[in-house]
Simulated scan of single mutants.
Amino acid sequence: MKKHAVLAVSALLTLIAPVSAQSLDNLRIMAPASPGGGWDQTSRALQSTLQNQNIVKPVQVFNVPGAGGTIGLAQLYNSKGDGKLLMTMGLVMVGAIQTNSSKVDLSRVTPIARLTGEYEVIVVPASSPYKTLGDLAAAWKSNTGLAFAGGSAGGTDHMLVGLFAKAAGVDPKKMNYVPFSGGGETLAAVLGNQVTAAVAGYGEFEAQIKAGKLRALAISAPKAQAAIPVPTMKSQGFNVDLANWRGIVAPPGISSSEKAALVSALDKMHASKEWKDTLKTRNWTDLYMSGSRFDVFLKLEANRTREILKDIGLVK
């Protein structure tokens, strides 16, 4: 009897194993933005690593641009129960949901993992009289009309200026923030002395900082970054840190086993040398967090973002 039982179990495992191994075949990743941007680049880096490491095959990336990612978010929500669909997203989407009054928010999706992040820097022209963040804050308190350039209204750059204003004792609703649609326009504005200061991810200003055309006053990291010789905001007495992070979510209504399979696939990808090399090559900061920890983080980040945008005056 024991021999028959062992054979029966072996036969059952043989039948189950191929199904488990193939459960993530034909995975699709939605980049809720146009080709070439950060979400698109992240999606294609995921696609490459997952396939090259034989974690999932095949993986298709497709784009659904518009409204800070909220058009793609609505499409993801309408794909309830699809355990082979993922969407790349991040802090920009958290803000866009609120500023666009999106009917679908991130409580309606299945969080899978936070992947990467980029810290922001506050820069001034090399000829600026402001040598430190404290210098800039003091001038700002006496003249709230000082102009700060950055990306779209309500985006990560705008949020950081709002947090800095509050920490510096400036009313965020009175700050003069000049939004630009692209990093090139922001760069031109600060290099041309059209604004007092500018904010963007470090990578956008790196070349001009190293060339001595811009002075980086601070970085929004929680602690000093070995590869970026810029003092943190916290080290200068301003209790602010903010990362423009990117993550992955799935549709609502997938099973616990489907979620576990997706989390496991990304855990394996994150552990691979190829992914670590990708992070280095692209200068992405590793902020990996998966499963239930990411669930909690998303809720906290949504609440934090809402408060920042309220302070700025963009949401009620």
Results as ranks from 00 to 15, higher is better:
K310C: 06
K268A: 14
D295A: 03
M93D: 14
N303V: 03
Y288F: 15
T281M: 07
D157R: 10
I254M: 08
P251N: 12
T278P: 01
S220I: 00
A221N: 09
T132S: 15
R282Y: 05
M89G: 14
A45C: 04
L12H: 11
N54E: 12
Q75E: 08
E118W: 00
I228L: 03
A139Q: 11
T70G: 06
R215A: 09
Q236C: 07
A224E: 15
M289H: 02
G247M: 08
T285P: 02
L146M: 09
A21E: 03
F180H: 15
Q47D: 02
G134E: 06
V161G: 10
A74T: 11
S20R: 14
F62D: 05
G37I: 02
Y202W: 14
N63M: 03
N100S: 08
L7E: 14
Y77V: 06
K3A: 13
N193T: 05
A250Y: 02
V249R: 10
P229Y: 01
P125G: 03
R246L: 11
A147G: 04
W284D: 10
Q225D: 09
K223D: 09
A96S: 15
G36D: 11
Y202C: 01
W275H: 08
S292M: 04
A168D: 04
I29K: 07
S292K: 14
A149W: 02
L50K: 10
G69Y: 08
L115Y: 07
K223V: 03
A302V: 06
G155S: 13
Y130Q: 11
E301H: 10
G162S: 11
A138L: 01
W284L: 09
P125C: 02
D157C: 10
V104Y: 01
S127P: 04
A221C: 04
L262K: 12
S20C: 11
A226Y: 00
A138F: 00
H158V: 00
K310R: 15
D25C: 01
L146A: 07
T285D: 15
E120N: 13
T42Y: 01
A167L: 04
G37D: 09
Y288A: 10
S23R: 12
F205T: 12
G253S: 09
A147E: 09
T196G: 12
P65E: 02
I209S: 13
T49I: 14
